[in-house]
Write a protein that binds this DNA or RNA. Structure first.
Length: 145
DNA sequence: CGGTTGACCGTAT
DNA sequence: AATACGGCCAACC
């Protein structure tokens, strides 16, 4: 949990912004930061998610009402959580699949979501649109029984 | 108290 | 195409 008032206000803004992501869509850490007017703080968005309270904690924002799984990195990949045990990326992939998002896996075993189909970038400038970035290569990820 | 470490990202080389 | 480098800053040695 954040210590200072300032940090807590930021965390609450991050959680509220994430709640705006529609079911079945994904966005990036950087875009959440951009929406909050702090384009240079994508990293702190990740910090907030790391400390997102559990659903049982009684906090206003928690893993039961903040769709944490809809935030991935700018390459369309589900980011690793180092120190937490393996399988955390898998859990995120499963949560996304659960709501109808296609998750693919590349040759390295990384999980990807195609932004051109599932991306939610409401503040994206019309001049952008990039080179499609991740264009659906890789195999469909299905849970092992 | 100083140094390191990340659920990151755009730019530069 | 692939690294490298700042910027960011709370949490944790």
């Amino acid at each position: 949990m954040p210590r200072s008032e300032e940090a807590e206000a930021w965390a609450n803004a991050v959680y509220a912004a994430i709640q705006e992501i529609p079911r079945g869509k994904v966005t990036s850490y950087g875009h959440i930061a951009l929406l909050l007017g702090e384009p240079q703080r994508p990293r702190q968005v990740g910090v907030c998610l790391k400390s997102l309270p559990n659903a049982e904690s009684g906090s206003h924002f928690h893993s039961g009402n903040v769709p944490w799984q809809r935030v991935i990195n700018s390459k369309g990949m589900i980011s690793h959580r180092e120190y937490r045990g393996p399988g955390s990326a898998e859990r995120q992939a499963e949560a996304l699949i659960q709501e109808g998002v296609e998750v693919t896996r590349d040759s390295m075993g990384e999980f990807y979501v195609n932004f051109s189909h599932y991306g939610w970038f409401p503040k994206m400038l019309p001049s952008e649109e990039e080179e499609g970035k991740n264009d659906g290569d890789g195999e469909l990820f299905v849970q092992d029984s």
